[in-house]
Simulated assay, not measured.
Amino acid sequence: MPMVKNLENVHQELMDIARQSNKLSYTKYSFDDVEKLQNRLRLIDSQYNEARFRDMTSDNGCYEEEGQAQVSDELVKVHKTLHIMLTRIDN
């Protein structure tokens, strides 16, 4: 699916976090390991909440930018993955 440029960068970062979490899940990881990934995710969350995903320079009349729904879904999936990983940590 095509996406606007500002979303492409966010998509790439989300995919990198997803790859890192997948790789990490096959090792003995700690809370700190997961927290590092969560911190990267928080940055994306803050951009999303501040509506920085939208291309404010274009006034194409669209409700959302191309790819915004996909990135939003990816964001939720990565959050869930990291949450599950946290619940599996031995205390």
Rank of each mutant, 00 (worst) to 15 (best):
residue 62 C to I: 04
residue 77 K to E: 15
residue 41 L to P: 02
residue 48 Y to N: 11
residue 35 E to M: 14
residue 49 N to F: 05
residue 69 A to W: 03
residue 32 D to R: 12
residue 49 N to I: 01
residue 64 E to T: 10
residue 58 S to I: 09
residue 54 R to L: 03
residue 19 R to S: 08
residue 50 E to S: 14
residue 59 D to P: 00
residue 6 N to H: 07
residue 7 L to G: 05
residue 65 E to Y: 02
residue 28 K to I: 08
residue 70 Q to M: 11
residue 36 K to M: 07
residue 78 V to Q: 11
residue 61 G to W: 06
residue 19 R to K: 13
residue 13 E to V: 03
residue 39 N to W: 02
residue 75 L to C: 02
residue 38 Q to S: 08
residue 13 E to Q: 13
residue 80 K to D: 13
residue 24 L to F: 02
residue 20 Q to C: 02
residue 38 Q to R: 15
residue 34 V to E: 05
residue 54 R to W: 00
residue 10 V to Q: 11
residue 80 K to V: 04
residue 71 V to S: 10
residue 29 Y to A: 05
residue 41 L to V: 01
residue 45 D to T: 07
residue 8 E to C: 01
residue 56 M to V: 07
residue 52 R to Q: 15
residue 55 D to Q: 09
residue 23 K to C: 00
residue 49 N to D: 12
residue 55 D to R: 11
residue 33 D to L: 03
residue 75 L to H: 15
residue 73 D to G: 12
residue 53 F to S: 05
residue 46 S to L: 09
residue 75 L to G: 03
residue 40 R to P: 01
residue 40 R to K: 15
residue 59 D to K: 14
residue 50 E to F: 02
residue 11 H to E: 09
residue 39 N to R: 13
residue 43 L to V: 13
residue 67 G to R: 13
residue 58 S to L: 04
residue 51 A to R: 13
residue 71 V to F: 03
residue 67 G to I: 02
residue 39 N to I: 02
residue 11 H to W: 07
residue 64 E to M: 13
residue 23 K to V: 06
residue 50 E to L: 14
residue 75 L to S: 03
residue 7 L to M: 06
residue 40 R to E: 14
residue 78 V to Y: 08
residue 45 D to M: 08
residue 44 I to G: 05
residue 39 N to V: 01
residue 13 E to I: 03
residue 30 S to H: 04
residue 20 Q to K: 12
residue 66 E to C: 06
residue 19 R to A: 10
residue 10 V to H: 07
residue 11 H to P: 01
residue 53 F to L: 11
residue 49 N to Q: 14
residue 48 Y to S: 10
residue 7 L to D: 05
residue 26 Y to V: 06
residue 76 V to Q: 14
residue 15 M to V: 06
residue 80 K to M: 12
residue 55 D to Y: 00
residue 31 F to V: 07
residue 63 Y to G: 09
residue 69 A to L: 09
residue 39 N to D: 12
residue 53 F to Q: 03
residue 49 N to C: 01
residue 20 Q to S: 08
residue 57 T to K: 15
residue 48 Y to H: 11
residue 34 V to Q: 09
residue 16 D to C: 01
residue 75 L to V: 00
residue 78 V to A: 09
residue 31 F to K: 13
residue 65 E to I: 01
residue 31 F to A: 12
residue 7 L to E: 08
residue 36 K to E: 13
residue 79 H to N: 15
residue 21 S to M: 02
residue 12 Q to P: 01
residue 57 T to V: 02
residue 47 Q to W: 04
residue 19 R to Q: 10
residue 24 L to R: 08
residue 25 S to W: 03
residue 13 E to N: 10
residue 28 K to F: 04
residue 45 D to R: 11
residue 54 R to A: 12
residue 63 Y to T: 11
residue 20 Q to G: 00
